[in-house]
């Protein structure tokens, strides 16, 4: 565990907490893509099946359980409890266009052709693009609430910090995992446009509004 990884994980945790608090406090999930949240639930379910087979550390187990549980909690809040506030007319991204290629890619490019390894690889590929329905929703409505922007910034920072973690581990531990690194790069690049808007607008107290 190094500082980049720790802050990456904390940033991820913060993103989830921000999102759940936003939904709970405002009793609304307006502006949030349920499609992205479903993809995240699929991602964590398929990645953390190794909870049954491999023990890494108490920290690792605890965080995995939190990520899986909160992803289902979010989906439940959006599709059941606060269903009426869900922005379904704008949340029209077709997630099969992300899931199917991720499945195919995981079957073709993986480290080992076993069920758990292919599912792990699938989850890495799918996570890299899982935010697209959310970014699509923001671009469709042309704006995002500040709290949604903070959520997206924390969520995007997590993989960016993981990139630093991988650079560190490459030099310090001679460890690298090419699949995770390439997917992590893709994932971070997808946020770049948003990061730019966040820094130039949201941090200066303005609302995140896309140019018309």
């Amino acid at each position: 565990m190094n500082i980049f990884r720790l802050f990456g994980d904390l940033s991820h945790l913060l993103a989830i907490i921000i999102l759940l608090l936003k939904i709970w406090k405002t009793r609304s999930c307006a502006g949030i893509s349920g499609k992205s949240q479903i993809l995240f639930a699929i991602v964590y379910t398929s990645r953390y099946l190794d909870l049954m087979t491999t023990y890494i550390s108490a920290y690792n187990t605890f965080m995995k359980i939190v990520f899986v549980a909160t992803s289902y909690a979010t989906v439940f809040l959006m599709y059941m409890k606060f269903k009426a506030t869900y922005d379904r007319n704008h949340d029209t991204f077709r997630i099969e266009f992300l899931i199917v290629p991720a499945v195919i890619l995981a079957l073709v490019i993986n480290q080992e052709f076993t069920v758990l390894e292919v599912l792990w690889t699938f989850s890495i590929y799918l996570e890299s693009v899982a935010i697209l329905p959310q970014l699509f929703l923001v671009s469709k409505t042309g704006e995002a609430e500040s709290i949604t922007s903070h959520y997206l910034f924390a969520l995007g920072s997590y993989r960016a910090l993981y990139l630093l973690n991988w650079v560190y581990r490459y030099y310090a531990e001679d460890h690298y995992d090419l699949i995770a690194i390439v997917a992590g790069l893709v994932q971070t690049v997808l946020y770049c446009d948003f990061f730019y808007l966040y820094i130039t607008k949201v941090l200066k107290g303005k609302k995140l509004q896309l140019p018309a």
Binding site: R5, T54, M63
Partner: peptide, 10 residues
């Protein structure tokens, strides 16, 4: 074939 390492990250 390289040995598959455990995935110790999240």
């Amino acid at each position: 074939v390289p040995e598959v390492e455990e995935h110790d990250e999240l």
